[in-house]
Computed example of a mutant assay.
Amino acid sequence: MNIREDSTTYTESECSELLRRIHEGNISTGGLRFVTICYGIVGFIKFLGPYYMLLITKRRQIGSIRGHNVYAVSKTEMIPVPNATVNSSIADSEDENRYKKLLCTVDLTKDFFFSYSYHVMLSLQKNLCNNEPGQVLYETMFVWNEFLTRGIRSHLQNTLWTVALVYGFFKQATLSVSGRDFKLTLIARRSRHYAGTRYLKRGVNEKGRVANDVETEQIVFEDVPDGLPAEVTSVVQNRGSIPLFWSQETSRLNLKPDIILSKKDKNYEATRLHFQNLVKRYGNPIIILNLIK
């Protein structure tokens, strides 16, 4: 995949004029044609034929954190990127169409959210203290389109053209206490590592990543006009599967299947890696609450 970025900054009129010239210069081959409105590039993917560009074509605002709007994905499109070197028979092959259908089973309009100006993959505290570049932010455990954007980020060495998608839950409500209005925001961020459905994913993997790893954050701030000082509080907690090698066999007849423990990690190396990662992310002390009855 070859991508080039024009470093020139254009006004709206200059951009329209440039597109007009490109259209007129290529009129013999059809010129430019309108494809879709785009609110963000999710990434690029290639199966057997051409590359496909995944776009957000509709969005809806679901909240705002101190002036930074947060959006949910309402509609997406997968646009093929033409390439003369790609055999048309491969691009229209049965296998190619099967892979495309498999990708389309991932519904980005359910529980994916993003922001153009706020790092929703990070907690409020990290947003206030963080100076990491965009490339590093995409590599965090809560950005689900990290792989899809890897190519364009590598070519352009920036993240200006893509949006980082977080998968989980975002809900915001206004509360009134003693005549003062507050905004309550609840955010749940699911890890992209060792992800899977209940019973099928349990325990920890060799890299110390646990199944169903979710970071939950509660943010409360006074609902005052943007620009005015306001007190803000944030509480973060993390939940995940027990960091041991264990599993459960699914059964419709047994609502509480037996827990099967594996003894392949006698030195608890994966468990150690998991807690090292927790300390790196949140610091000490690590307080564990056992949810097993």
Rank of each mutant, 00 (worst) to 15 (best):
G227Q: 08
Q218V: 13
A91Y: 08
P257I: 00
Y99D: 04
L54T: 05
A195C: 11
H274Q: 08
K100F: 09
L148C: 03
A195P: 02
N131F: 02
R239E: 14
E139H: 06
D95G: 00
K101S: 13
T216A: 15
N127R: 01
F147R: 01
H119L: 11
T174L: 12
N277F: 14
N277W: 14
I41L: 09
V106F: 07
D95M: 12
R33T: 13
R281C: 14
E12A: 06
N290Q: 09
S117C: 01
T271E: 12
Q61S: 07
I288P: 08
Q157H: 03
N87Y: 04
S262C: 05
F169A: 07
R272I: 05
G63D: 04
K58W: 03
Y52R: 14
K110A: 15
L244W: 10
S154V: 05
F147P: 00
S262K: 11
L228D: 07
C129I: 14
P225N: 04
K101A: 15
T159V: 13
Y71C: 02
C104H: 08
P82G: 03
N26T: 14
T36Y: 00
N277G: 11
T36G: 00
F34T: 10
G208I: 02
N212A: 15
Q125Y: 13
F34R: 10
Q61E: 12
Q157D: 08
S16A: 14
Y118A: 08
L289D: 15
K266V: 10
Y194P: 02
R20E: 02
Y39E: 03
I219D: 00
V73Q: 02
S28G: 05
F114P: 01
L128M: 15
Y10V: 05
K46C: 07
R150H: 06
S123V: 04
S234Q: 03
L278D: 01
T57I: 06
R66E: 09
I3R: 05
K183T: 07
P82S: 03
S241V: 03
S28R: 13
N26I: 07
K201A: 08
I187N: 01
L278N: 02
R272H: 03
L160A: 11
L160I: 06
Q61T: 10
Q172C: 04
K183F: 08
C104D: 08
S89M: 09
I90K: 05
L103A: 05
S247W: 04
K171E: 09
G151R: 02
V163T: 13
T174H: 06
N145G: 09
V177S: 04
I286E: 06
L160V: 10
N97R: 14
F182A: 11
T271H: 11
K280S: 12
E77K: 13
G25S: 07
R192T: 01
R66C: 10
K280C: 08
L102K: 12
R190W: 12
G30Y: 08
D92P: 03
T29E: 15
D95E: 13
R281L: 15
V86C: 10
I62F: 02
D92L: 14
Q218K: 09
